[in-house]
Simulated assay, not measured.
Amino acid sequence: MPHEVRAVVALKKGAPVEVQTIVVPDPGPGEVLVDVQACGVCHTDLHYREGAINDDFPFLLGHEAAGTVEAVGEGVTDLAPGDYVVLAWRAPCGSCRSCRRGRPWYCFDSRNAAQPMTLLDGTPLSPALGIGAFAEKTLVAAGQAVKVDAAARPEAACLIGCGIMAGYGAAANTGNVQRGDTVAVIGCGGVGDAAIAGACLNGARKVIAVDIDDKKLDQAERFGATHTINSRGTDPVEAVRALTDGFGVDIAIDAVGRPETYKQAFYMRDHAGLLVQVGVPDPDMKVEIPLIDLFGRGGALKSSWYGDCLPSRDFPVLIDQYLYGLLDLGGFVTETIALDQVEEAFAKMHHGEVLRSVVVL
Results as ranks from 00 to 15, higher is better:
residue 5 V to G: 06
residue 309 C to F: 11
residue 51 G to S: 02
residue 173 N to Y: 11
residue 84 Y to W: 06
residue 254 D to N: 07
residue 8 V to A: 06
residue 319 I to Q: 10
residue 303 S to G: 14
residue 258 R to K: 14
residue 334 T to Q: 06
residue 206 K to C: 12
residue 208 I to T: 02
residue 39 C to L: 00
residue 153 R to D: 14
residue 247 F to Y: 10
residue 351 H to W: 11
residue 277 Q to H: 09
residue 231 S to F: 12
residue 54 N to W: 14
residue 346 F to C: 03
residue 24 V to N: 09
residue 104 P to Q: 03
residue 353 E to G: 07
residue 45 D to L: 04
residue 268 M to G: 12
residue 210 V to I: 01
residue 242 A to S: 13
residue 351 H to V: 09
residue 213 D to G: 12
residue 160 I to A: 02
residue 93 C to Y: 03
residue 44 T to E: 13
residue 23 V to W: 12
residue 154 P to S: 02
residue 22 I to S: 10
residue 199 A to F: 03
residue 319 I to T: 01
residue 174 T to Q: 05
residue 223 F to Q: 08
residue 196 I to D: 04
residue 301 L to D: 15
residue 50 E to H: 12
residue 239 A to M: 12
residue 19 V to M: 03
residue 197 A to P: 09
residue 328 D to S: 09
residue 309 C to L: 11
residue 9 V to P: 04
residue 358 V to M: 01
residue 344 E to D: 15
residue 212 I to P: 10
residue 206 K to S: 08
residue 174 T to K: 04
residue 334 T to N: 03
residue 229 I to M: 05
residue 1 M to I: 13
residue 81 P to T: 07
residue 284 D to R: 10
residue 291 L to Q: 15
residue 34 V to D: 08
residue 213 D to S: 11
residue 352 G to V: 03
residue 215 K to V: 10
residue 260 E to T: 12
residue 342 V to T: 00
residue 337 I to C: 06
residue 351 H to M: 11
residue 238 E to H: 15
residue 65 A to L: 03
residue 247 F to I: 09
residue 120 L to A: 12
residue 269 R to H: 12
residue 210 V to H: 05
residue 346 F to Q: 04
residue 346 F to W: 02
residue 165 M to P: 13
residue 298 G to C: 08
residue 141 A to F: 06
residue 282 D to Q: 15
residue 301 L to K: 11
residue 300 A to D: 15
residue 10 A to K: 00
residue 226 T to Q: 01
residue 87 L to Q: 01
residue 27 P to E: 07
residue 143 G to S: 06
residue 112 N to Q: 11
